[in-house]
């Protein structure tokens, strides 16, 4: 089954910016985790996850995000969420992600928080 999830990657001088589009489900979460593992292999442990174009996320997608955050923390890094839809933000809040990851209203603000 094909999905409509999209993911773009942008390595800056100091972090990785991942921008998603579409439903963050198992497939989407797996892609995000894979990109973060790739970043860690390149010694990049600071990640901005831009969810501007993702309005829906399920618990399996969230479980992949949790795993990604743990990987970054193990490597001494951090993840900051940007452009969160209110419903998605509430879901991440309830699942406890903001105990271990940051959130910011924009990608620029997220980059500042990482620094």
């Amino acid at each position: 089954m094909t999905s409509d999830f999209g993911l773009t990657t942008d390595y800056t001088a100091d972090c990785l910016i991942l921008s998603t589009a579409g439903y963050i489900n198992s497939d989407g979460g797996d892609q995000i985790l894979a990109k973060i593992q790739e970043a860690l292999s390149r010694d990049v442990n600071r990640v901005v996850l831009n969810l501007l174009d993702s309005k829906v996320i399920n618990s399996i997608g969230i479980s992949f995000l949790i795993e990604a955050i743990e990987l970054l923390m193990n490597a001494g890094g951090k993840m900051v969420f940007a452009n969160l839809d209110p419903a998605v933000e509430k879901a991440l809040q309830i699942m406890g992600l903001f105990h271990f990851a940051g959130r910011a209203p924009s990608v620029t603000d997220a980059q500042k928080e990482l620094n």
Partner: peptide, 29 residues
């Protein structure tokens, strides 16, 4: 779909057995 962690969802609206509208989620999946 999000509540139940389903990969895909479809909603059909019909009248007297004839489908008059269909919606998919994700839209293009």
């Amino acid at each position: 779909a999000a509540l139940t962690s389903a990969s895909f969802g479809r909603l059909t609206v019909s009248r007297e057995g004839e489908v008059i509208a269909t919606y998919h989620f994700p839209e293009n999946a």
